[in-house]
Amino acid sequence: MLSMIAVACGGSTEEVVEEVAVEDEHDHESTLEQVQERGFLKCGVSTGATGFTEVADDGSYSGFDVDYCYAVAAAVFGDYSKVEFKQLTAAERFTALSAGEIDVLIRNTTWTQSRDTELGNDFGPTTYYDGQQLMGRKADGLSESSTLADIDGLRVCTNAGTTTEKNITEGAGLVGATIELVTVEAFSEAIDKFIAGECDIVTTDGSGLVGRRAVNDALNDWAIFPASPISKEPLGPTYRSNDSQWADIVNWTVYATIIADEYGVTRANIDSFDYEAAPEMGRLFGKNDGELQTKMGLSADAYYNVVKQIGNYDEIFSRNLNPLGLYREGSYNDYWNNGGLVYAPPAR
């Protein structure tokens, strides 16, 4: 009995002691050094976002955001699997980042001015351009060309305490539409209410709406509008301020996937690709001296490993989001010279 008490007390505090000792040494190290010494990357992801962070029945992770976690690990270690995921709720994500519990936050987080300037975070390049839209039933007379003015007098379901809620109130107020706002805790509840007929409209980021419409097989029944979203939601990686080495590593991991996409380098053709004809790709993949990467504190072939193991932007996108009915063509996420916003600075 006595030993039980002692063990029980011990069980919960022993980790504490070890970690204190370890962290003290780490205090003045850069994020990269911490990550390398630890041997794995701590990546903050969502507790669940269809297509972006999913946990399969065997506990394995997949999704668009998850793939970028894997990509950063591949850049740092040359092995994508050296990553530990921390599922974070919307409320804790920034605290977890600033407290050092995670090295990078890739959790469909919208880049806003206040989050960038006030919270001690910096945002990396946007990986997915999202925007808030509304979804209603075609049977109620709504169509893809409907506008905010058409929702006058309707019941709108959304999740509480997010920018989504503020955007719709603000937007409806501007066009003079009076709406009855029904707020619930999570988007899944909002859509359940919408299906059960307890509200006429459901609103959240466009990717979420398109995804749900596809899996519910309701392409002909539900309309998503307005065509240009009522808000801008650029989603991308977030890291702590004042560590530009780490920021560069994360940023260029994203850029590397985009540049590889520009040149059409995929996981399949990466080894047969003609690097003589594309010197930029050669530089990025460390085919000559790889000085660009080694100066960043990475190995010369860091970004080769990223594309080899995870794939280029288009592969990551289509693998995770095409099955949900989200396509790049015609969206902001298309390649920059196809009219989209996906663009990377040159590697030289």
Binding site: T50, E54, I195, N216, L324
Partner: peptide, 10 residues
């Protein structure tokens, strides 16, 4: 949130 291939969304 499990979408592909099992589709348990909703």
């Amino acid at each position: 949130n499990q979408s592909v291939p099992v589709n348990f969304v909703g």
